[in-house]
């Protein structure tokens, strides 16, 4: 009874959550077990056919592609973003807020527009090729568009602020006297980084990775614009199945597969941070 009263304030939030997240989720799961008629309408007939189909090697390849893209995006944003977060935390307060502002600012610009910026930069007749040719470094335009790498650049670019902010928060929380103790005990800066800073910022790294990985699985307009459909990702496939293929049950099955991947990553994340919390309670 007491617990109920204490949690009463959470009830409206839970209702909203149920309406906005729970119902669509259940809907997707239910649809993934249904069939469709020739016109693409959903038919109330239970089937496992959709799941059988996504295990087809052609479709499994799409899962692998998406996983690779999301994983590499996490890796790239970590490698580039960690130093940014680390250096930012060492700036004096005024410059630090400026840097954080600059990192967050692109969020307020349409992501479609920013992706389009890469098209202008990387296109065969784009800025980079024009500059390279004007300088005489290359004879003909470099083919930079429509590759897996281009999609990776675009996705990493779109999501790197999440990584930086997550890592920055954990670097900033770091007790500076631990670094001093490390130097005092004879460690070099490099040793201090590897033995103290890095292990203590694992929660930030894991958090950033999760925040980047999840949307990277589903983004489809970046691979449409920059990848040119050369590599098929889950997002594109689902998008196509719903809008053109008119096969919503199969799209739903893919969505469930994607959700399973996300749950996998989140559970790894929570395990990583749980171990860490024990040590961080000092």
């Amino acid at each position: 009874m007491k617990a109920l009263r204490q949690n009463a304030l959470a009830i409206p939030i839970l209702i909203w959550f149920g309406l906005l997240v729970g119902i669509p989720l259940v809907y997707v799961v239910v649809v993934s077990f249904l069939s469709r008629d020739d016109l693409g309408n959903i038919v109330w007939q239970f089937t496992l056919d959709n799941y059988r189909r996504i295990l087809d090697p052609v479709y499994l390849r799409v899962f692998v592609n998406s996983f690779m893209l999301a994983f590499l995006t996490g890796l790239v944003t970590l490698l580039i973003g960690y130093p940014v977060a680390y250096i930012t935390s060492k700036l004096d307060p005024k410059r630090r807020s400026l840097a954080i502002g600059l990192i967050i600012l692109p969020f307020w610009i349409s992501s479609l527009l920013r992706t389009y910026g890469w098209v202008i930069l990387l296109g065969n007749w784009g800025i980079i090729n024009n500059v390279l040719m004007a300088l005489g470094l290359v004879d003909q335009p470099l083919q930079m568009m429509y590759r897996f790498g281009t999609t990776l650049v675009g996705t990493a670019y779109m999501l790197i602020p999440f990584m930086i902010i997550a890592v920055y928060n954990s670097v900033d929380k770091l007790d500076k006297s631990l670094l001093e103790a490390s130097y005092d005990l004879g460690a070099s800066k490099r040793q201090t980084f590897l033995r103290v800073v890095l292990p203590l910022t694992i929660p930030g790294i894991a958090g950033g990775f999760t925040l980047v990985f999840m949307p990277a699985l589903g983004l489809y307009f970046i691979s449409d614009l920059l990848g040119g459909g050369q590599t098929v990702f889950l997002g594109n496939l689902i998008h196509t199945l719903v809008n053109r293929g008119r096969n919503r049950p199969l799209a739903a099955a893919f969505s469930v597969g994607m959700i399973v991947m996300v749950i996998l990553v989140v559970s790894i994340y929570s395990r990583l941070t749980k171990n860490q919390k024990e040590g961080l309670l000092l």
């Binding site: 007790d175 006297s177 631990l178 001093e180 103790a181 490390s182 103290v196 292990p199 203590l200 860490q276 040590g279 961080l280 309670l281 000092l282």
Partner: peptide, 8 residues
């Protein structure tokens, strides 16, 4: 504040 390494 002792500055013991919390992860060790």
């Amino acid at each position: 504040n002792y500055a013991l390494f919390p992860h060790l």
